[in-house]
């Protein structure tokens, strides 16, 4: 049971990070290497605000705003200028990640910070005593993912987004302002990452490298699931988080990483379009 909860915990966090990445990739065909650092922005917003004596919950509310502001700046200053040069967007956003990481180090120092747990204690679920904060993280992340998916497939805003992802030119010829949607989705993706970073800050050590730890797993999830579908990454994230936690039951964390990454590479090698890719209609 505990294994299941741990898996769910990792799954839901990774999902929050991946959702933003997927929308940005689907919409603009941009691989955003700085996405992990948006997580950092959220986490350090909490460090700053709680450090100044305000409550964690206020910080949690402001973190997505901080993430969105940084995301919109990155979009306007960097991504917008080169989004038609595919490989260069990878490099430029990686440069941005370097800048953000270094900026955090300059302001907060290179050492790990800790955020006081606003929800201490455990709660008994399904016969296991599980930390209350982790349960909250899980519940919020899953809820948010659900809401986003429902919005994506049931609202008119989601319909616009899916139309641009499916066929950018055609969507534009039907009157959809693709530029504005690029900005909006970049901001939203960054806000989600900022929120994820903030909500996990009490249970993780907050350090400048924490974003990098999410980078590879989230990209692998997307590639495994398939880049041009919104459902695919759900499977990708499930595969990565599930196998990580299963193997971690027997092996050390480092060995687990090696095995999971290798497996993911093999899958990507043989299913470059993602596991879920429909055989051409």
């Amino acid at each position: 049971m505990e294994l299941f909860l741990d898996t769910l915990n990792y799954f839901s966090l990774l999902m929050l990070v991946v959702l933003g990445l997927v929308v940005i990739f689907g919409l603009m065909n941009v691989i955003n290497m700085a996405h992990g650092e948006f997580l950092l922005v959220g986490a350090y917003t909490v460090v700053g605000i709680t450090g100044a004596g305000y409550s964690f919950w206020l910080a949690l509310a402001l973190a997505p705003v901080a993430g969105a502001v940084v995301g919109l700046l990155v979009e306007a200053l960097v991504v917008r200028r080169i989004y038609h040069r595919f490989l260069d967007t990878i490099l430029a956003t990686w440069g941005v990640s370097l800048i953000l990481k270094q900026g955090v180090i300059l302001v907060f120092g290179p050492t790990a910070q800790s955020v006081a747990n606003p929800l201490p204690g455990v709660m008994n679920v399904f016969g296991v005593d599980y930390p209350r904060m982790r349960l909250l993280i899980m519940a919020v992340a899953i809820l948010l993912t659900l809401v986003l998916y429902i919005a994506m497939f049931r609202s008119n805003l989601g319909l616009r987004l899916r139309a641009v992802i499916a066929n950018r030119d055609m969507a534009s010829a039907l009157g959809l302002n693709t530029r504005r949607m690029d900005m909006a989705s970049f901001g939203l993706g960054a806000a989600l990452a900022g929120f994820a970073g903030a909500i996990i800050s009490p249970v993780m050590s907050v350090d400048p490298q924490m974003g990098a730890g999410f980078l590879i797993p989230s990209f692998l999830s997307i590639l495994i699931g398939g880049v041009n579908s919104l459902i695919g990454p759900l499977f990708g994230v499930a595969a990565i988080s599930g196998s990580s936690n299963l193997i971690a039951g027997w092996l050390s964390q480092a060995d687990t990483q090696i095995i999971v990454f290798l497996m993911a590479m093999v899958v990507i090698r043989f299913f470059p379009e993602g596991i879920l890719k429909r055989r051409q209609k």
Partner: peptide, 29 residues
């Protein structure tokens, strides 16, 4: 938005969307 409707070569409908969604997309913006 100023009133040009476009039916491209090869149709380019949104194959994964429902028929109703395709029509809504034409109107929504």
């Amino acid at each position: 938005q100023r009133g040009i409707g476009y039916v491209p070569q090869g149709r380019e409908i949104f194959g994964d969307f429902t028929v109703a969604e395709n029509l809504t997309i034409g109107r929504i913006a």
